[in-house]
Amino acid sequence: MTSRMDTRFAKLKAEGRPALVTYFMGGDPDYATSLGIMKALPEAGADVIELGMPFSDPMADGPTIQLAGQRALKGGQTLAKTLDLARDFRKSDDETPIVMMGYYNPIYIYGVDKFIDDALAAGIDGLIIVDLPPEMDDELCIPALAKGINFIRLTTPTTDEKRLPTVLNNTSGFVYYVSMNGITGSALPDPSLISGAVARIKDHTDLPVCVGFGVKTADHAKAIGAAADGVVVGTAIVAQVAGSLTKDGAATADTVSAVSTFVRGLSTGVRSARLVAAE
């Protein structure tokens, strides 16, 4: 069986354009609203969905995503409910790949084997676990791969030639190149440096390479999209959610539409970036 992820990237390749990968925080600011956001993403032009799992101590996230996680937890979000989001979403969309992104401890406490089974049943295609480097592959990566869930790894500017094979080993789905040393929500780096870095990764793997951290506008998305197989946008989307809430952090009638309008703009940018064949 070809996975949703492979099918999606093959389709984009045929269309000759990069993927738009969109992150949002599951349960921010409440379950129903975030399900509404999730359902609106593909229609607004998202090709892959990153579903954030809130954690009390998000050590690699900047203030925007930290606050989103706090709102979600305050709204009663749990890992089980984040899996429910995917399950509910799959009732109307069985094609858009879903990658869960977050930190390891909630999964460890849920139980690794149970989590993998439940994630598969909920229609999850991949995992990005920030605090599980290759040295910790026995924890979750290997059991997840064995059952057919992609384990997507972050590579960073500190991942040198020597280490790259270690990081790419056991990676599947796509490679997520974090374009800078830093936390989510930092400034955008120089796009001209990015194409070199992407080429370097492509010397070692046939997987699609998506680039993220710092993408905030349609122009950014276009510039990055020209140099990579996909553009990941997270903080800027979460900021749209935050900007639409009441003073007390509750959703408004505008929350879902603020996100979809913004993503539609990004999508226009991405679709106008003709893929400079980086094969």
């Binding site: 690699a60 480097p133 972050l154 500190t158 974090v178």
Partner: peptide, 12 residues
């Protein structure tokens, strides 16, 4: 114990 850190920190 172990080394549960982001990839950016791993080489360091």
């Amino acid at each position: 114990g172990g080394r549960f850190v982001a990839e950016t920190l791993m080489p360091l």
